[in-house]
Design a binder for these strands. Structure first.
Lengths: 128, 128
DNA sequence: CATAGGGCTTCCAGTCACTGGAAGGTCAAG
DNA sequence: CTTGACCTTCCAGTGACTGGAAGCCCTATG
């Protein structure tokens, strides 16, 4: 398979896949013409990566998950620990964003949004 | 005021303030010894910036907000538009993160997390 | 007067995960 | 034979800092 084929199958840009090779997440061989040759297994790996990335796992977490995936003697506890940590970070982020959203929507609601200069948004940023 | 003083007042690292000077958000003068000399106005600007950044506004949005803040002839509509756009992006992010959280917490819940290799998290990443 | 420490300066490099673009090789169709 | 889609490498840029090295400045103490 050429890079374009796996790219389509994984739903990832070819550039991203080249990058994944650079950092050692996939190791395709090469055809005589220098083109990357992806196996079916490589394609599965990339699909796995695309899904893990879509769930917000960092590249290093993906690397760890891939290693566990390929390790038949893994303990599911190790996988679960990674996912749990990640879940906790996501929940933190959501809480942070919700706090921003609440403040911002209050401010947006309180601002007339007309031609006049008076603006509670600016006042709040200036005065706390 | 030296950089350390404004840093403490604004709650920003000195490094960040130097960076803000680099990109033209503040323009302190210099003392004879080369130290940055911040005025009371600079301090207020930095406090404004710190608050806007804490609400998640990008640097370019902060630049625009700062310009509006300093423009007595501004229309509050312009400020409100920036805030509303930002609010919409935050709401998108929250929705994305909530989708991740929901999927992840299902997966974490379904995984035994013991010594055995069977892991629904990996299965789901591999098979969709 | 020397020195020790803290704060200040600049500049360079690294972060994360790509992304864009230039310059050029390869391949299949018409 | 040419066109156009694909592939290659390499370099640089993104956003918003952050870390670190090398060195100057200021104050306080011995």
């Amino acid at each position: 398979m050429n890079i374009g084929d796996v790219a389509e199958r994984a739903g990832l840009p070819a550039k991203t896949i080249r990058y994944y090779e650079d950092i050692g997440l996939v190791r395709p061989t090469r055809d005589a013409n220098g083109y990357r040759a992806f196996t079916e297994q490589d394609a599965h790996k990339l699909i796995f990566l695309a899904r893990a990335r879509a769930l917000g796992f960092s590249i290093e977490e993906c690397r760890a998950l891939l290693a566990l995936w390929e390790d038949r003697a893994r303990a599911s506890a190790d996988v679960r620990a990674i996912a749990k940590d990640h879940l906790a970070r996501i929940e933190e982020k959501i809480a942070d964003l919700e706090a921003m959203r609440d403040t911002l929507s209050d401010l947006v609601r309180s601002c007339a949004g007309d031609n006049r200069p008076d603006c509670p948004i600016l006042t709040s940023l200036a005065e706390g």
